[in-house]
Design a protein around this nucleic acid. Structure first.
Lengths: 343, 343
DNA sequence: CTGAAAGCGCTTACAG
DNA sequence: CTGAAAGCGCTTACAG
């Protein structure tokens, strides 16, 4: 009934040859007599042989496993990035070990530790936004393990990264709001100290300036280290007279909450207030009104990060590796929540 | 600059003892003199020692890696199940290797193969719905590798499983529609040959019968091996005079599409037609009107499956293992899409 | 309390 | 074309 998985040794015994020969035959080594080779491969198949990856990798010095570090797996953005990563990496025979940080820096440290213990071939990581502490990532660099940051980054580390051009994305959204006639636009901010949201702010602010739209600090709605809820944002908006005519939200989530809250009190969207989100979450196309937002090409981001890793692995062999930054250009998705006129 | 990860051998050399002693010291083996032990542990820390899991597992005969097989990772239901799995398993020192089948039976086979090659400690799998072919799963059983099915199953395999009580869930939704005054209810079906959707149908049909609500086959809207789009469903509904007054959809997705399509032609929901979905997807609470649906406790399903695996690993040691089935009771989430009166 | 030796399952330089 | 031997990094039964 119960059975052990066959080894090279088992095959060798059955075939009446040495383990060396079996090992070579299974690698299609041309040195081996083709008849012996075929005989061995047949036996391997009959025994349902699965090579022991642990032993293989131990001998070879490094595994074909790539670590992926994400804040959490159950956010569509990340599971979609992972989809792109797996597509590229599986084709090259790599497996992917996914670990979540779940908003805990110490968990992030443990995860890196765990990857080191697995002697992974490389790491793709979206580092935690607020963490100032990245010695664990430095450890990877120290051991020459290729590390690629995606989506977020510790900007000063000498590693390759693929980022969203958040400045550009924000500029697109701001531009669009202005073209729709908005002149008093609220900036619904994310937590401070977050590089991504900072860049979105800059893209937004610079665009307004360029177009000569007035903007002052009291149009920034922000919590210290957290998101302002859409509901609270709605209250602050409704307290302004005259009402603002546009809102730029750094996340879809806030924007959607805001829409719900404003609809309840009868504010017409987009006629009275036009609203943009950021990320093109699945829901944005389904809510009423559908939300204008910025698509970040998440799947492609994963694919690009994976390709960078493969490239780096190659380049390290001949010492030609130099860290590289790639910015993906985001895309403005125009929907009802801003459409007051045709652009 | 660049550096190799330290080994037990390295530590031994620095400490002037044998590798055996180091290995024991790091395991807190009480045989080792406490002074030597502390000295060794200090050196290990200084060298930033990470045990080589590959070597460790090879020697021990099996790894601390658990394989998780899902149809796809970028569906919220699955990433949420995975969240539950990781929570339980990580606490016990297990890592999780996640693989996606992506609607391809051959990929599913490859994935099992890959897990076998990694000598994983156990497998948690949501098998593909339609696949009649499950020899790859039998292989796991043959090699005594604990296998737990979740959400879906090959019903005749002698393995433990945690399933949603779909019959009950469907009964709850049907009951609710009837209580809201629906008397002519359309069943929006999933692909044939799918055990899950079959059970939902039975729960639905039996409830109508019990409550003496008429139901005939022409109230079943179905495609052969695929989902009927919400839009097509809407067309078929609108062709009926008088209009049906309720729709039971086996998925949230179809239900949402249907709502969008019906809203466009001015059908009032829930006043003219009440609609229920199934799964409690994130969007269901956000669309207009919010969708009444069935919550499947996805996170808990993952946690339960993981616990079953740990239990099985224990029980196999003393040969006390017997496969077990657990049904999770789903929950009716009542929202606007059906609320025509107070229940 | 500590060490030398063997072995987990593979691969590969070396010898023939 | 094939095999014996060594070694990847660990653990553990055995001996002292």
């Amino acid at each position: 009934m119960s059975q052990k998985q066959a080894t090279i040794h088992d095959i060798a015994k059955k075939a009446g040859v040495s383990s060396s020969t079996v090992s070579r035959a299974l690698q299609d080594n041309p040195l081996i007599n083709s008849k012996t080779r075929e005989r061995i491969q047949l036996i391997a198949e009959k025994l349902n042989y699965q090579p022991n990856v642990l032993a293989h990798n131990l001998r070879k010095g490094r595994s074909h496993m790539v670590g992926v570090l994400v804040p959490r797996i159950d956010h569509h953005f990340f599971s979609s990035v992972i989809g792109g990563i797996e597509k590229v990496l599986n084709e090259q025979g790599y497996n992917v070990l996914i670990l979540q940080a779940l908003d805990s820096v110490s968990k992030e440290v443990i995860n890196v530790q765990s990857l080191l213990e697995h002697r992974i071939a490389g790491v793709l990581a979206c580092p935690m936004a607020l963490s100032q502490d990245y010695n664990h990532y430095k450890l990877l660099v120290k051991y020459d393990i290729p590390l690629i940051f995606f989506d977020n980054t510790h900007i000063n580390m000498p590693v390759s990264m693929v980022l969203n051009d958040d400045y550009k994305g924000a500029a697109l959204a701001a531009e669009h709001l202005i073209n729709q006639g908005c002149r008093k636009i609220i900036f619904l901010a994310g937590p401070r100290n977050n590089y991504i949201y900072q860049r979105r702010f800059e893209g937004f602010r610079d665009t307004l300036k360029k177009r000569n739209i007035p903007f002052s600090d009291d149009q920034i709605f922000q919590n210290e280290s957290d998101f302002l809820s859409g509901k609270d944002a709605a209250n602050r908006i409704l307290a302004r007279m005259p009402l603002p005519d546009g809102v730029f939200s750094v996340t879809d989530h806030q924007a959607i909450q805001l829409i719900q809250a404003l609809k309840i009190v009868g504010v017409k969207i987009p006629q009275q207030i036009a609203i943009t989100g950021f990320s093109n979450a699945e829901i944005t196309s389904i809510i009423d009104p559908p939300l204008t937002t910025i698509d970040q090409h998440s799947r492609e981001m994963g694919a690009v990060a994976a390709k960078m890793l493969l490239e780096e692995l190659e380049q390290r062999k001949n010492n030609t590796f130099i860290p590289k930054k790639i910015y993906l250009t985001p895309e403005l998705i125009i929907r009802q929540s801003t459409l007051r006129r045709n652009e």
